[in-house]
Each structure stands twice: as structure tokens, then as C-alpha cells.
């Protein structure tokens, strides 16, 4: 594999991962300071960002002006779905969302500049144009989640308590993998940025609503195909004690870490394949 061999000899996977995180941290720090030289603009954009993301939930609240239940679920339950899905998407967007501009980076030659630095190109791409204003979404989603947790009537057993942070972490990994995986399409199809939106922003919108309102085929599609259901639907069934519309074994409700690992692995393979195609190694 072209990129794993380094001059320092056999670098372990762990060292490589740590170096990636450090490179990301350094670059993101630079971008943050650069953005902060336009402070007023930053505050305005952060505010606008929170307003835009709040709109989605406001619409859900308006819907509940006309009904008590949607697909049999209550407003606090939708708040739980909204909050968890929003945090996962928002954190993924914060960390790796910049990959969506891969096509533009290739056209501008920025990717080449990344390839001549001694740091993993993916880490640099993820940090490119990093902005803390992307915190708007996770912060707003966290507020909704906090409200829903107080309004929910849940018997908090230890496994339910534990599932919440686990699903947030796994959800972030799954959305990150979707960002990266679908961004790699742009190695071949430079303008296909919006495809990624369908699965990231579209996926998060899907997860705002309970699985009961969708066709069973669609629900099955996001369990066995693009595994969005593991972000919050499946664990939420356990936490909120709701029946599974597909009648899957209960193990699925705890399986988010497995799905997240699988997603990360596939995204990694796709990225490598894409970079190989770009540099002209494979094929």
C-alpha cells in the first residue's frame, strides 16, 4: 500500500493515527486563528448557523401543535432523536466535514500542496478551512437533547444510561465515515458534492423522525445498506422501550460500535482507492 510505507520504517497503525490527529489539530488550530482575525463575521455566522439548524426542530414543534404523536412517538421522543442525530452529524461535520470540498481542492491544486507535506493527506483535508462556527449545530442539538432527557419518562437502567454516550460516539463515527466515503466519489466525479449531502444531511433529517413513519424497505435499507439506523434509531428503541418495526433481534440495538467500525473501515478503503486513482497507482 503506497501510503503506509514511510521512511521511518514500519510505523505502527497507532502511531500513524496519533500523527493524523496531531496534524489535524495543528492545521485546525491555524484555521481557527485565521478565522478569528475576522471576529465580527465569525460571531454573525455562528449565530446564523444556530438559527438555520434550529429551524428544523422548530418545524417539528409546529407539527406537534397539530398532533400529540407522530408515528406513535411523542415530542420529547422526537427531541431525543433530533438531539442525538444532530450532535452526531454536527460533530462529524466539525471534524471531517471539510472533505465535502474535495473536488474544489483538486481543481485549485490544494490537494497537491497537501501531498507534498509530510502529514497524512486525509487529516489535512479534514482540517482545511476548519471553522468553529460549525459548533452551532452540535450545540443546538445538545440543547434539544438536554430538554428531551428531562421531559422523557424513561426507566434509566444502567445499559440505557451507557447507551447514550456510546450512540453519540458511534453516531459521530458513522457520519464521519459517510462524509469521507462519499467525498471520495469526487476523485472520479468532481462535481458530485451533493451526493454526499443526501447521505449526511439527508441521513440526519431521516433520523429526526421515528422509524415507524417510513416504509419498511427504507428502514431495512438504512439497517443493512447505509447503516444510518445504528446512529440513533436502533439504540433509541432500547432506551425509549419502543418495539422495532422490523422485528430485528435485540442484539441490533447494541450493535452500533460494530456498525461504526465497519463504516470507518470501508471509508478508509474508499479513501485509499480514491487517492490511488488520483495519483495514478492502481488500475
Amino acid at each position: 500500500m503506497a501510503d503506509t510505507v514511510t521512511g521511518a520504517g514500519a510505523e505502527t497503525l497507532l502511531e500513524r493515527a496519533r500523527w493524523s490527529v496531531r496534524a489535524w489539530w495543528l492545521m485546525a488550530g491555524m484555521w481557527t486563528r485565521a478565522v478569528m482575525s475576522y471576529r465580527a463575521s465569525f460571531v454573525l455566522m455562528l449565530g446564523a448557523n444556530i438559527m438555520i439548524t434550529s429551524l428544523d426542530f422548530f418545524v417539528v414543534v409546529l407539527m406537534f401543535q397539530h398532533t400529540d404523536r407522530l408515528g406513535g412517538w411523542t415530542l420529547p421522543e422526537l427531541g431525543f432523536l433530533y438531539g442525538t442525530s444532530g450532535i452526531a452529524l454536527g460533530m462529524a461535520n466539525l471534524f471531517v466535514g471539510s472533505t465535502d470540498a474535495l473536488g474544489a481542492r483538486i481543481r485549485a491544486g490544494t490537494l497537491d500542496t497537501m501531498l507534498i507535506r509530510p502529514a497524512p493527506a486525509l487529516a489535512q483535508l479534514c482540517a482545511e478551512r476548519f471553522s468553529l462556527r460549525r459548533l452551532g449545530r452540535p450545540v443546538q442539538a445538545a440543547a434539544v437533547l438536554a430538554w428531551s432527557l428531562t421531559a422523557l419518562d424513561v426507566a434509566w437502567t444502567w445499559d440505557r444510561v451507557l447507551l447514550v454516550p456510546v450512540l453519540l460516539l458511534c453516531g459521530t463515527v458513522i457520519f464521519s465515515a459517510l462524509f469521507i466515503g462519499f467525498a471520495t466519489l469526487q476523485f472520479w466525479w468532481g462535481e458530485a458534492k451533493e451526493i454526499q449531502n443526501s447521505f449526511t444531511y439527508g441521513g440526519a433529517t431521516l433520523l429526526h423522525y421515528p422509524p415507524t413513519i417510513f416504509a419498511k424497505e427504507l428502514v431495512a435499507g438504512v439497517v443493512f445498506g447505509i447503516p444510518l439506523a445504528f446512529v440513533n434509531w436502533l439504540p433509541a428503541l432500547r432506551i425509549l422501550d419502543r418495539p422495532d418495526p422490523l422485528g430485528l433481534p435485540a442484539a441490533f440495538q447494541y450493535a452500533s460500535p460494530v456498525a461504526a467500525a465497519l463504516c470507518a473501515y470501508v471509508a478508509g478503503l474508499l479513501w485509499r482507492a480514491g487517492l490511488r486513482a488520483y495519483r495514478g497507482t492502481g488500475s
Binding site: 503506497a2 501510503d3 510505507v5 514511510t6 521512511g7 521511518a8 491555524m30 486563528r33 485565521a34 478565522v35 482575525s37 475576522y38 491544486g109 500542496t113 501531498l115 507534498i116 507535506r117 509530510p118 502529514a119 497524512p120 495519483r279 497507482t281
Partner: peptide
């Protein structure tokens, strides 16, 4: 260069006349 890109990166310096690698706002 093809196989050891990052090792090579430490041994070379690159300057593009039309494209700066400096941080614009910093």
C-alpha cells in the same frame, strides 16, 4: 517518491510561484 511520499516530503522543498503555501490571514 511514489512509495514513500511522506519520507520524501521531509527531504524536499517546493515553491510554486503562483500559489503561496503561507497562511493568508496569519
Amino acid at each position: 517518491p511514489a512509495r514513500e511520499r511522506t519520507a520524501l516530503a521531509r527531504r524536499i522543498g517546493v515553491v510554486f510561484g503562483q500559489r503561496t503555501t503561507l497562511w493568508w490571514d496569519l
